[in-house]
Design a protein around this nucleic acid. Sequence first.
DNA 1: TTTTCCATGTAACTCGTTACATGATTTC
DNA 2: GAAATCATGTAACGAGTTACATGGAAAA
Lengths: 178, 178
Amino acid sequence: MPNEHKLLLLGLLRQTDMHGYMLNAHLDATIPVTLKKPTAYHLLDVMEKDGWITHRNERTGKRTRKVYRLTEQGEAEYLTLLRHQLAAFTPGEYPGMVSICFLDSLPVPESIRLLKDRQSRIREYIAGFHHTSDHPVDPGTRHRGSAALAIDFIHRALKLEMTFLDDVVHTLQDSTNQ
Amino acid sequence: MPNEHKLLLLGLLRQTDMHGYMLNAHLDATIPVTLKKPTAYHLLDVMEKDGWITHRNERTGKRTRKVYRLTEQGEAEYLTLLRHQLAAFTPGEYPGMVSICFLDSLPVPESIRLLKDRQSRIREYIAGFHHTSDHPVDPGTRHRGSAALAIDFIHRALKLEMTFLDDVVHTLQDSTNQ
DNA sequence: TTTTCCATGTAACTCGTTACATGATTTC
DNA sequence: GAAATCATGTAACGAGTTACATGGAAAA
């Protein structure tokens, strides 16, 4: 999905002005996305050069930080990106599925062991997930924001992956006691 | 997922020796994966330099093609990659979810329209999918190969995305007639 | 006072894409 | 004889990562 990271940064900046470090801190809390710190700083530079955002310097002692704010153009770009990405569909990569294609290259017991390893890694991931994604209900609007919808989807996707792996393991087990 | 494309190429070459063009043709038929022609040729070069595969030239008239074959080292690397990737978990990107986070920036009717656009694109994708992924049952072993499992997962994932979007649309509709 | 956190980056690298180039062969 | 397909690439670019660099401030 092109510019998905820009949309995320713009969307956060639209809510409140922020500096890069704070943005990075908010990223994981909003939605699990692989956007590393250097990349985020870089995107802020790019978007500033393009006139989508501007920054003012805030000083605390000798330390300064760049607090970014959306420009009018940035607001317009935000809405354009949002409309495009809401209507777009990008197939997705489904990482780890290639190895499933070649399951039969290994002895069945080993395959089962490896798949159960994967499952325990998924469980760990889900566990770390609940900590960061417990968004409180906004007392003003009394709804949780649409981010909760996205989080919910990811939960469902992870659950799907778990039950799929269960099915695969069972298929493998059946194939030995047939 | 690192080296997933290499694993795919090795896995196909392990079944039968092939030249690059044929590999590219088989890619989509095996599993839907975004691996473009130039990338595949490049990976073949790299893996040959690393001693994982070798090629012989086959001539038909003036046209030659490079038919690749796994080396012993390639076989070993294949198994190592396979074991690692079967046990590994890579979170996945869930493209299109960022835009869901900011749904409330647009008027509800427009959001609904855009999401339904996305759904129709997913439907098209699924339709084109059934054509390529009708793998015949192997008459010798009488099983469909593990690739069918991966295909099945992708089907389930796409269905999940559809019902998720249904849910979101319904949530939006309810929020107006509340 | 040493570690941890705050805050911003740079440089080199990996992986992959797009658009293009080339030429032979088969099909219409 | 023109168009599609077979077959292999190159060159330029883009997005993002990793590891590292820098320096101030707060906490242990």
